[in-house]
Computed example of a mutant assay.
Amino acid sequence: MYRYLIVIEKTEGNYSAYSPDLPGCVATGKTREEAEENMQVAIEMHVRGLIEDGLPVPEPQSFASYVTVQ
């Protein structure tokens, strides 16, 4: 089981999501929740494709944290 960080960004007309550990794996949605759900599906398909092609599945390496500035 893998656990990948995803980043969701608000754009002009929707939300977009990507995973730093899976280059090229992206998704969008009208809402943050929809983008997250679509990213779940995209990651599952991406990883399944890598396995089917006999390619290595990247180990999750990314972390996220907030920094507070005054």
Rank of each mutant, 00 (worst) to 15 (best):
E36N: 09
M1Q: 08
Y18D: 01
I51G: 08
V57Y: 12
F63G: 12
D21Y: 14
Y15V: 02
T11D: 12
V26Y: 13
G29V: 04
C25K: 06
L22V: 00
R3P: 05
A35Y: 00
A27C: 01
G49H: 04
S19M: 00
E33R: 02
I6D: 04
T28R: 13
S16M: 12
K30Y: 14
P60T: 07
T68M: 15
G29T: 02
L55I: 01
L50N: 00
T28W: 12
N38R: 12
S62P: 01
V69A: 14
E9G: 07
Y18C: 00
V47L: 07
S19K: 10
V69C: 15
I8T: 11
T31K: 05
V67D: 06
G13H: 14
Q40C: 05
V57I: 08
K10E: 14
R32C: 13
E12M: 09
N38G: 00
E37L: 10
V57H: 08
G29P: 00
N38P: 01
Y15T: 01
V69N: 15
E36Y: 10
G13T: 11
A27D: 07
Y66A: 13
C25N: 06
V41P: 11
A35P: 07
P60Q: 09
L5Q: 11
I8W: 02
A17M: 00
E9P: 14
H46L: 05
Y2I: 02
Q70F: 00
I51V: 09
R32P: 03
A27I: 08
G54S: 06
